[in-house]
Computed example of a mutant assay.
Amino acid sequence: MRTLALALAFAAGSASAQDSALVDFQVLTPELALKAAVAAMENCRDGGYQVGVTVVDRFGLPQAFVRDRFAGLHVYETSRRKAWTAVSFRAATGELAASTEAGQISSGIRHLSEALPLGGGLMINEGGGAMVAGIGVSGAPSPELDEVCAEAGIAAIADEIAF
């Protein structure tokens, strides 16, 4: 009986992380989320664009939102949905734009109420590659320019999350 107990204890101690009842994960602090959002907005402003920027946590819940003074009314919804889409599908929304067009195998994604496969949403990954957040930008003259500003937001915090 004692041998069986020792074997069970050893097996339990050597179980992989996937067998654990608990999950460990990392998310940005609110301060870093805000820093990324402001940096993205300022990058767009420097380019002459008035935008809104949302940073969501890895679960798609908003952590920070900033809107430049003349940005359109739509920028909260679109920036939030872009960030949500990036973390939900673990892909840049610009990539999803092409893969979800009519006739594509993933076109059904466009029928989801929150998904917005339109460039400007990116995942934020820590140095080891784990996703910790998403950022969405809306209001620049094109989705590609929204994405450039989102990249600037990520670059502003890259040193702090490159652990």
Rank of each mutant, 00 (worst) to 15 (best):
R110W: 14
R45P: 00
Q63S: 10
F59H: 15
S88A: 15
G60Y: 07
S99R: 14
G94W: 01
T29A: 07
A91G: 00
V55I: 09
Y49T: 01
E77P: 01
D57W: 00
D46H: 11
S106W: 13
P62K: 08
V27H: 07
G94F: 05
T93R: 06
T78Q: 10
V87A: 03
A98Y: 11
V51R: 00
R58K: 11
G48H: 06
L61E: 11
A91D: 07
R80P: 02
Y49P: 00
L61Q: 10
G103Y: 11
R69N: 15
G60H: 03
L32S: 07
S107C: 03
G47R: 14
I105T: 11
R58M: 11
G52F: 03
G60Q: 05
F65R: 01
R45W: 08
H74C: 01
L32T: 09
S99Q: 10
Q26C: 12
Y76I: 02
L28I: 04
S106Y: 14
L34D: 07
D68L: 10
T29V: 03
T100F: 05
T85I: 00
S88T: 15
R90G: 00
Q104S: 12
A36T: 07
V56L: 02
E42M: 06
R80L: 15
F59V: 11
W84E: 04
A86G: 06
R110T: 15
G108A: 05
P30Y: 09
V27Q: 13
T78E: 13
A97Y: 10
P62W: 04
Q26P: 01
A36W: 03
V38P: 02
S79V: 02
A33C: 08
L34A: 11
F70A: 14
G72M: 04
V55L: 01
L61A: 13
S99K: 12
L96V: 08
S107T: 07
L96C: 09
T78L: 13
G52N: 01
G48P: 05
A36I: 02
A97V: 00
A33T: 06
A71F: 05
G48W: 07
S106Q: 14
A91C: 12
